[in-house]
């Protein structure tokens, strides 16, 4: 599997490493995907890197690669963001993978081996849900709202109504809320705020977890929040050019 830029892998690692220390990557002809629970079992994260994400991709037999994020991160730090990455896994030797970074301008090539792990990962079936509310907005804006409000309090409430979407945090000494309304005057789709809902709803989530989830803003200019009463929120980042996505399901806080 050859990626045109290592930056994609670096960003994916950054988006999951606070939640997941080791995970199985499933490789098949469609691409590479992973699903993992965080150690607190509060978040389920799913990453899909489709074949379209790669400059070249071949997977003759489906394989599962058990990857320890810490050494994977050390190896990836050796790659320049604009260097090509080739990941090689051999069906004859499933003990390790090889990673090759190529810098075409400087005619430099570096090669690494990463030992694979035998990970006994749980796998969850996530049914297609009928969401009560969906909000799409610039991922940078969502990140700023969450980062700011997480400083105010550890509970982040998201309310959707005719007023728009309201994010509220309450701490011991202060309370803050931010309201976003659907944008009408913005041409660029990536800068638009779109809100749809069937009934008004209000859900509360742990702000520190939501903060970790906003790290994936580096992967996509937009984010979609899908909510339903008494259900986990789904925070979805779609990568450009059908390259794949990262989805987080975060369990609510309730009485």
């Amino acid at each position: 599997a050859r990626l045109p830029r290592s930056a994609v892998l670096k960003k994916i690692l950054d988006s999951v490493k606070d939640l997941v220390k080791e995970t199985n990557w499933d490789c098949n002809e469609e691409g590479m995907s992973m699903q993992a629970l965080d150690t607190g079992r509060i978040v389920l994260v799913e990453v899909m890197l489709r074949e379209a994400a790669f400059e070249s991709y071949a997977c003759e037999v489906p394989m599962t690669l058990g990857i320890d994020m810490e050494p994977f991160g050390k190896v990836l730090r050796c790659a320049g963001g604009d260097e090509k990455v080739t990941i090689k896994a051999s069906r004859n030797d499933q003990d390790h993978i090889e990673l090759v970074f190529e810098n075409e301008e400087k005619e430099r090539m570096s090669a690494f081996e990463l030992k694979l792990m035998d990970i006994d990962g749980e796998h969850m079936a996530v049914p297609d849900a009928e969401w009560g509310a969906e909000i799409s907005m610039p991922s940078s804006e969502f990140k700023k709202i969450v980062m700011d409000l997480a400083e105010i309090g550890s509970d982040l409430t998201i309310a959707v109504s005719k007023l728009g979407v309201t994010f509220t945090a309450q701490g011991n000494n202060c309370k803050g809320s931010m309201v976003l309304q659907p944008s009408t005057a913005v041409d660029k789709k990536s800068e638009q705020v779109a809100i749809s809902f069937t009934e008004p709803l209000e859900m509360t989530f742990a702000a520190p977890y939501m903060k970790m989830i906003t790290k994936a803003a580096a992967l996509s200019s937009t984010v979609t929040l899908s909510l339903d009463e008494a259900c986990p929120i789904c925070v979805r980042y779609e990568m450009e050019d059908n390259a794949g996505h990262i989805k987080y399901y975060l369990a609510p806080k309730e009485d």
């Binding site: 629970l37 079992r41 509060i42 978040v43 389920l44 749980e122 796998h123 969850m124 079936a125 996530v126 049914p127 509970d155 509360t204 742990a206 259900c231 986990p232 399901y249 975060l250 369990a251 609510p252 806080k253 309730e254 009485d255």
Partner: peptide, 14 residues
């Protein structure tokens, strides 16, 4: 205070 739910009960383990 609100209680943090676990994610697992919302989905079906495979």
């Amino acid at each position: 205070a609100l209680m943090q739910r676990e994610i697992v009960p919302y989905f079906e383990a495979l």
